[in-house]
């Protein structure tokens, strides 16, 4: 037993300078819904800046623009697009939930059920969108071998 745990009255040895792990507050669905809402909101904001940059490439002419948007074809960037889609969908549906809590008298009472609906709606709408975003990245799987070598 470490020294500081010997429970003598008053004259306990000073505790070791051990680091104390902070434990997170065990909030329920409401806390997670808020945390995801803030993270998704900030994530979308980040994309907005990127979007302004990629669209502004047009002012350097179609060549530059076409070259720069090829970026969105990379598999990594397609995966990031998936994250963006999830964030937008969640933020939108949960934003509607928050407004229902704010303006509908029974909103607070049904907030947990509404969170379930938000998650379900996010996933249901996400699946077809994910199919269209990731589909082209897997063309080499579905196409005949000679077509794959021709590339884009």
């Amino acid at each position: 037993m470490p020294e500081h745990q010997s429970h003598s009255y008053c004259l306990k040895a000073p505790p070791p300078a051990s680091r104390i792990e902070e434990e997170m507050y065990k909030g329920q669905s409401g806390m997670w819904s808020w945390l995801f809402h803030r993270i998704s909101g900030l994530g979308i904001l980040l994309f907005l800046f990127i979007h302004i940059v990629d669209v502004s490439m047009l002012s350097f002419g179609p060549g530059v623009y076409n070259q720069s948007v090829v970026l969105f074809d990379y598999v990594v960037v397609r995966l990031l697009s998936l994250a963006l889609v999830i964030a937008v969908l969640y933020h939108t549906f949960n934003g509607i939930r928050i407004m229902a809590i704010d303006f509908w008298r029974k909103g607070s009472r049904y907030q947990r059920a509404m969170f379930g609906i938000v998650l379900a709606a996010t996933i249901i709408v996400f699946i077809p969108m994910a199919y269209y975003i990731m589909g082209p990245a897997f063309q080499w799987l579905t196409q005949a071998p000679h077509a794959a070598t021709t590339g884009h």
Binding site: G27, G30, M31, W34, S108
Partner: peptide, 15 residues
């Protein structure tokens, strides 16, 4: 921000 931690914490069951 309607996080609802407060309603869960209240020992008097106040919403």
């Amino acid at each position: 921000r309607t996080i609802f931690n407060c309603a869960d914490a209240c020992p008097r069951g106040i919403p």
